[in-house]
Design a protein around this nucleic acid. Sequence first.
DNA 1: AATGAATGAGTATTCATTCAT
DNA 2: TATGAATGAATACTCATTCAT
Lengths: 197, 197, 197, 197
Amino acid sequence: MKTTAPAAALSTRDRLVAAAVRVVARDGLEAASVKTIAAEADVTPGLLHYHFPSKEALLEAALRQALEGYLAAVRARRDALPPTRLLDAVFEDARAAIAADGEFFRLRLAFAAKALADPALAAVMRDLNAAAIEENARSFALARGAKRPAARDRALAATLKAAFDGVLLAALVTPDFPLEAAADILRTGARAWQDRP
Amino acid sequence: MKTTAPAAALSTRDRLVAAAVRVVARDGLEAASVKTIAAEADVTPGLLHYHFPSKEALLEAALRQALEGYLAAVRARRDALPPTRLLDAVFEDARAAIAADGEFFRLRLAFAAKALADPALAAVMRDLNAAAIEENARSFALARGAKRPAARDRALAATLKAAFDGVLLAALVTPDFPLEAAADILRTGARAWQDRP
Amino acid sequence: MKTTAPAAALSTRDRLVAAAVRVVARDGLEAASVKTIAAEADVTPGLLHYHFPSKEALLEAALRQALEGYLAAVRARRDALPPTRLLDAVFEDARAAIAADGEFFRLRLAFAAKALADPALAAVMRDLNAAAIEENARSFALARGAKRPAARDRALAATLKAAFDGVLLAALVTPDFPLEAAADILRTGARAWQDRP
Amino acid sequence: MKTTAPAAALSTRDRLVAAAVRVVARDGLEAASVKTIAAEADVTPGLLHYHFPSKEALLEAALRQALEGYLAAVRARRDALPPTRLLDAVFEDARAAIAADGEFFRLRLAFAAKALADPALAAVMRDLNAAAIEENARSFALARGAKRPAARDRALAATLKAAFDGVLLAALVTPDFPLEAAADILRTGARAWQDRP
DNA sequence: AATGAATGAGTATTCATTCAT
DNA sequence: TATGAATGAATACTCATTCAT
């Protein structure tokens, strides 16, 4: 019989997924060979293929896990705020991401590039993107006094997410990117959109 | 004496750069092996290394050429417009890019991901990004009635470029992305920023 | 249960080392490509790199193994002789080497040339050379009636080894090299050195 | 019309040979590619094949030129000495070579290794080796009071040359090689050989 | 579940040589 | 003479995958 320490004792499968996330976030997809990932998980390459049919399958699981973790973090922060502050929260999320999220963004960018040629990855990204947008759309609806998100809420959420992604990329490559101006411009546009009847 | 047909008369070097651009735009960086690029240029792999010290050097030249081509196109369109329509032109550029530019964006995204780990590529991107932004900043200054671009013009230009890049990526991955809303939100924010004293 | 035939039971690693020794001794370092060595070991080139991080690492192991084998042979012959005959034994060793050792010397010469530019190989040669010299120095001390080798014993051993190496090279390139004269001259000089108080 | 400065203006052919000698002496045969040698001679690789049918032919010329230069230097020093001091001169030559001749020896060792598998190179080495030995043999005959070198003189010359070559190699690889002892042992043996009736 | 050995196709790069100009 | 472009074969090495144990 084997007793498992509750938190630390990840299954081999989960260790592999976590290792893949770490490697891609830290060193990019080019460095994410089977050998490298297996070593990061302290496991032999052969075992990786016992748990996953291919390297692609593992990478897909890694992308899903990374995006789900991000989504959960967004949700948690959102649940702790009153509805009227939700639009501000989006901007704070974005600013926090820009300040701290270099690694996670590296992973997201690497996978985005790969997804353009890989339908399975594209599907994962689309689904979890949609979930995050729906989450924010719900918040925007509440702030407007509506119970359920409408098309205008989803459009706002999708736009802000996309725009901030672009800003995040630019800020990572260009050290002196004008973050304040970007936030100001986007916030003004968003407020006007919200106040429209 | 040799008459040169305008298109076929590219030097081998230029044919290699063009081939690299094509391959990366069409199939991504993962498919851009020396063998593939050489074949696309109708050349032997050995010859590629006669003209470029390494694959990396060729890819860097390809990125530069692609971005310079883009910059030239932006400049040309800009020169054909009266100053008061310049802000609108940015939005039209962006919309045109979203509608038509899938291939060019694929290349840009692939190189962006690689640039996070490759300082030489990052420098190329930064330089040509900065040139494009300066170009637009000049337009925005003229529209404000100023002769020379100030920090506020550059901030606006940088923000719009970054935000539209994000929108472009999202639109490529998500077919039903709300382009109209995005343009509206960004335009509103930009106008408010411009009208500020 | 597996019965192992003594010769065939080499590990893959050992088969690779032996194959490298054989190829270098027979055809020289220029012919010692990864492909050639792998074929000689009846193994795929990929497997060579599974067992050795690089071709250089394999060649270093091969050099060490060849020199250790030689050293062991010298020791064995030495142990079978009475102390007074030890100086003569050195000359017999040398003559035997000259007569029979073409292949081993080809390897040694190839590696010596390479070692001038490769510190790792140079270290291996130096260490095993020193061991062989110390071995002979001990013999010369015993022949003098001393228990432990002194500087004069090591100087004699080093000189004889070096001089015979040169003679061996010359004899290999020049078929009619005067081996008897060489042995006579060296023996006379060595005896005089030994008889000195 | 082209005027040629008398000493500096080597023919292209000679510049190539000199460049090959320099490259091999400095960096070894492994570094002596056609490209490298041509660059050292400030010439294009294509031109090399105009003057030499193959790389091998150039290397053979380089070896011959290096050995002939060495032979000329030996002859010159010999001509300046009275007959009775000639044996000493051999030892001084050798000591000078050991002290200063690292580069030349590197070349000689590299070619020696290659010559074991290349009959054309082996012939060059043998011929010029024989010439140098004959030179010394003549000296030894004179010192004995004979007019013409006999077998015993040639044997002595061949032995000393070979032995000193070995010592030179050992001294290059082993920094603390006992040069004094080596010279002493060889000189004693040589004198005894000379004094024999 | 896990290992470690093995494969075969693929990678970028270097090389001596040829040839039209 | 001399150049610079071009070729094709060879180089060491990496990779995802398979499989017997």
